[in-house]
Nucleic acid binder design. Structure first.
Lengths: 201, 201
DNA sequence: GTAAAAATGAATAACAGTACCTATTTTTAA
DNA sequence: TTAAAAATAGGTACTGTTATTCATTTTTAC
């Protein structure tokens, strides 16, 4: 099963898989909902899923599909090379991870490996390139996360305090605690972090 | 001629074009350099170019190719739907603009239109959705643009002043002038703008 | 039910950016 | 060569963030 919301990319994917795996039967869908509808009927061995899809993304779809069929192998495709994303994806029981701009043989390698019950990563070294922001972000409390969302919108402590009906001092304390957890120092480093990473929280 | 640095997408593109335009001869390249090397030999009527490619992007490649062959029609493909990008692309003599996640027939429509000497946009309405930040950004002077780059890296006025060997007051003045041009007010609105739009300057 | 964690609030000092001015020197273009 | 534009620099008042430390109340979990 192949799922990607980009029709042209999906077409390329199917052609390549058909060329490489001549005996395989391939079913392609441009939406997660379509894929879910047909999953039990086609009952595939492998699902190759785009990470960034509207409504239900690749990870959520994978979780849904693996509930239906525990032995299903899932390979996630993505354009994003951010280590933080990849780390969080691997933590969610995905069997393979391939970048969309990789060469074709990366994907066939991935298929062979996951069928042999191995985990396959296109570029394992990418995981060692930066600190694990994701793990630290997970240590933020609900309120801290909410405050961080407001900070990402460039609201002042006063504005956040007013919308949440608390004292400015409370927001300033939250800012401080968040900065400490994320090991951010210096002026506006928290704002910069929030703006750059808003899609992660 | 088709040029895209994503091999899988390129494969899909070629298959679709071959299906739709059965009489056409299609040459595909995964890099701008390869495309430039072979351009005069294959002498195509249309070039379909990815916007985001390393080293030479689609716009620059288009400019190079149109110098060699003035009558060449160029269709740009992109994932980005930001009006600012599209506006600046259209200003550079591109004949067509199609989004990568569009349906297949968008591309064939575009090809028909540009061959009939029309300009084709996948979604012309996107141009009316926001203010034209690009035009305003173009009014920034060289130094203002440089300062903005430093601001986007969350440097303080003092740090920027030290690296450019000028007074902190000069940098503060630049900040002020840039903010006025971009119509930004309030605390850290310039920093937020710089971080969010750093790839535009 | 109690201990830990989270959320709330405050005081203070230092640092940084905003928003106005004014003014001089240097560069660019007509 | 001269007028306009750009870059330089300073003044001042204000707003906002950072970095500490301390303290109370509320929520959560065992």
């Amino acid at each position: 099963m192949v799922v990607d919301d980009h029709p042209i990319f999906l077409k390329g994917l199917v052609e390549i898989l058909q060329d490489e795996l001549k005996t395989a039967t391939i079913f392609a869908y441009t939406s997660s909902v379509e894929a879910l509808k047909n999953f039990t009927i086609i009952n595939p061995d492998i699902a190759i899923l785009d990470l960034d899809m509207p409504v239900i993304n690749g990870i959520k779809l994978s979780e849904n599909l693996k509930v239906i069929k525990l032995t299903l192998k899932v390979i996630i495709l993505t354009m994003h090379k951010e280590p933080d994303i990849i780390r969080s994806v691997i933590a969610k029981g995905i069997d393979g991870f391939v970048f969309k701009d990789d060469a074709v043989n990366e994907l066939t390698n991935a298929i062979k490996n996951v069928l042999a019950n191995n985990i396959y990563l296109s570029d394992p070294s990418i995981l060692n390139q930066t600190e694990d922001k994701n793990e630290i972000l997970a240590t933020l409390t609900k309120t801290e996360c909410l405050v961080l969302k407001h900070i990402a919108q460039n609201k002042t402590s006063k504005q956040i305090a007013d919308t949440l009906f608390v004292s400015i001092k409370t927001i300033e304390n939250h800012r401080n605690n968040i900065s400490k957890k994320l090991q951010l120092t210096g002026s506006n480093s928290l704002l910069t972090f929030a703006v750059k990473n808003s899609r992660f929280f």
